[in-house]
Design a protein around this nucleic acid. Structure first.
Lengths: 233, 233
DNA sequence: CGCGTCTTTGAGGGTACTCAATCGAGGTGG
DNA sequence: CCACCTCGATTGAGTACCCTCAAAGACGCG
């Protein structure tokens, strides 16, 4: 984990997707003073489930996966975090240990902000609090949708949905491939199935002309058809 | 829905599980002034998924189920709310429509509080904001656990887990039966399976001496064994 | 007592999992 | 440069789990 010169929060292009935009001059200064930014490589851990949360992280660059470890060490990916997202804040605020593990998928640059600073911001800035609550509520809504999907949909439907979700969230590169490199196993841990099932579904979609595969790279060819499948029509 | 004389929030024994305890005299007065309390009967709806959220509810008495409606109208129960819980606040804060439907399981008494009041409290009382964020974060943690369970555990394991969870949350009456009346279908919608599968699991547990059944009433006889099953040991 | 609703049981089948073997790509060392 | 190794991806076979459908039984209510 290499350390890198901190970017001024005030000048950060992201401002964490507008979460921090309501901060005043002094709050920016303090946030900037307390933080600690680092470069992480694919495979690096940001934090581990069960560990004590002494602060949270703001993602400036890269992709992080957040997962829970279930039975026999099987990972269940809960969500991804990318530039502008903050992670670990929940565990800080609820004063409990991290309930997920955060691991780097694409090389990343993250700023660590100690717990105390977060509490102070909540205390001093009502607008910030509101944004934070709204963030948590949004995540909760997504989680509830996820629960319903996993409980009610087939693997095929969920696979189609996941591909579309990845497209929405990470878009495609110049060649048209999804901008997130996932192993088949990671896809399986996201959909909530076995690796082999993911492979079978992908090759089914491929043979149907819905997607194109090139190693780990996935190109969506017929989004409308995937959508139809994901909604079991 | 019968209207009932409002209880003074300040004198409410619950104070919503300490969420409102940080309010000052004036805030209590305003909260009290704005609210509107009603009695609801089993089967009544509190709010519907998709409807616009103009306020939230504080449960004074009774049990509410919160569910999402999935494919072909199948319900997925997300959680229950009981005395001291607040419901619908997420949709109010994220300014979106309700993402679940709330329906009464056991006759209830709820106080409705308009959205504006909630926003004002968040704005004026940092301590209240923090409590609210913590509440959302707790719920998020539970939801993430739920996702992992549904994705990785078998019906049998989840069934055992649900029974223990219900015991934790609602305890038992004087006869030792779980204090929540659920139909087999509701149990299925909670576990995320078919009604018939729930029945088979219950009768399996019964024949193994783990539980006792009397209509809808369930008595847990061997919690330790259920725990072992739920953890796939 | 009759009706409707909920519950229970059985049979059959499909989905998706596990296990095992093969294939392929990337990296390493001789 | 190529053999080798390892890890991930793929494919196939067999099977377990759990769903669906159908029918009968139990319970509560008017």
């Amino acid at each position: 984990m290499i350390k890198k010169k901190n970017i001024e929060c005030k000048n950060c292009a992201l401002k964490s997707s507008l979460l921090f935009e309501s901060l005043n001059e002094e709050e920016y200064t303090m946030l900037n003073y307390d933080k600690n930014c680092q470069i992480y490589k694919r495979g690096d851990f940001i934090f581990h489930e069960g560990n004590h949360a002494i602060g949270f992280y703001c993602v400036n660059e890269g992709i992080i996966k957040l997962y829970k470890t279930g039975i026999e060490g099987r990972e269940q990916i809960i969500t991804f975090a990318k530039e502008g997202d903050i992670i670990g804040y929940r565990s800080v605020l609820s004063k409990e240990s991290f309930c997920t593990t955060a691991k780097v998928i694409s090389d990343a640059y993250l700023c660590f902000i100690p717990a105390q600073r977060l509490f102070k911001l909540v205390e001093s800035n009502a607008n910030f609090s509101l944004k934070l609550i709204q963030q948590a509520c949004k995540e909760l809504e997504v989680a509830n949708k996820y629960i319903t999907d996993i409980a009610q949909k087939t693997i095929k439907e969920r696979m189609a949905e996941v591909l579309l979700k990845l497209h929405d969230e990470f878009n495609v590169n110049t060649e048209g491939y999804l901008n997130i490199p996932l192993t088949r196993e990671e896809l399986a841990n996201l959909v909530g199935t076995a690796t082999e099932s993911v492979i079978r579904m992908l090759s089914l979609f491929k043979s149907g002309g819905l997607i194109e595969l090139k190693g780990r790279k996935i190109k969506i060819l017929q989004a409308d058809e995937l959508k139809r499948i994901s909604e079991q029509l």
